[in-house]
Design a protein around this nucleic acid. Sequence first.
DNA 1: GTAAAATGTGACTAAGTGGTCATGTGACCT
DNA 2: AGGTCACATGACCACTTAGTCACATTTTAC
Lengths: 220, 220
Amino acid sequence: MPKQTFYNLPEEKRKVVTSAAVDEFAEYGFEAASINRIVANGGISKGSFYQYFDDKMDVFKYLLDVIANEKTEFFKGKHPPSPGQSVFGYFRWMMKTGMEFNSTNPKLVKAIGRVLLTEGMYYGKMFADIKKKTTDALVEMIKSAKQNGEIDANVDEQMAATVMDTWSNVISSSILNEGMQKKDIVKWVRLPKTQKYIDDMLSIMEHGLRNVKPSSLDDE
Amino acid sequence: MPKQTFYNLPEEKRKVVTSAAVDEFAEYGFEAASINRIVANGGISKGSFYQYFDDKMDVFKYLLDVIANEKTEFFKGKHPPSPGQSVFGYFRWMMKTGMEFNSTNPKLVKAIGRVLLTEGMYYGKMFADIKKKTTDALVEMIKSAKQNGEIDANVDEQMAATVMDTWSNVISSSILNEGMQKKDIVKWVRLPKTQKYIDDMLSIMEHGLRNVKPSSLDDE
DNA sequence: GTAAAATGTGACTAAGTGGTCATGTGACCT
DNA sequence: AGGTCACATGACCACTTAGTCACATTTTAC
């Protein structure tokens, strides 16, 4: 984690440095990210960087911290449609609300996603526990869905979690990548066409390729 | 593509160099792969490397060529279970036979997969056409499946192709990664437990999470 | 005002990168 | 034997990397 000196910084400066780091990871991924470029674009000296952070991993961990806080803050103001909702309905709401969040800070989300979803697999247990956290939450969801019969009792929970996690990532990154090329990503995410894409994808996840149910169900 | 000098090399030497490149890409991915290490482990001098290849991309393209040829050769001896088979049955056969191939040269498959599935997205059109080739084949499959009613006519073909491609990659790399840690990957892939994993995953893809049909269907 | 503590700085190191090139080597041909 | 041609070599180049450290500057405490 960053040292105290970094948190003592005036907010403006801290934001410039953070933004430079976000840009770097979003553009180059973790392995190829350069501290030299971060300090250059962040308007600080090399020495200062090492007074703020231990190393490249440290600054990335800070970004993980930032996104976790921002996400918590964002979801604080949101509430799932109706309690007792079906698990699939809840998951759909989560995906859509998640995409709303993603469009508030797309570069940060892209940076984190790029590192975690691609290089993360090759950094051993460093990122494994982060992934485990998501999986555990999904497994809980699946357990309750199996209890009320929404998901077949024979389905392996880990496997179902893999399925949901995979689609969550595929859908998010696909929408994010396309949306970042539009001029107004927030607007684009809210477009019926984009929303339908999410619905259709989740519908396939729920009902399978063989027999896809119509996607337009009323909730939220 | 590599220059003629490389193909003129005695087979043994060419194999050592190829193997060094495979190891390098499998271990470090494309971006972080080092030509210096390849020449060191390949037992050739720096100058020779540039007499064989243009650059890092060139040697990787050669590996793409190698795997394409090996795969063609491998599938030449195999035949799909029964013609007129259901598309899902055919896809299942493809996956399982593909895994058989993967276990014949796991390092090469891992290297290619790692680069194509992760960094590939960030190398623009360089790898895009390779991906398009796979997608096109899938779209053809899906079209015929829609015609004989196996897949809902309303399903978007590109979307269905994304679904099948995604699962193909997720299942393959998951099995490959786990299998490479076992002492005999070929044996491990053929284990009923591993085969059941493939069946179950494909069953979820076919029937959805909500209602998963039993996976053990007789074919092959 | 003065001392002390905290923070900022960029030249510098050692190591690694992709890529070049003059020189060397040995096989083959005339 | 002389000449040619394909291939092999590693020193070398310019550049980038992560990280350090002696010194400069600013802030705080008294």
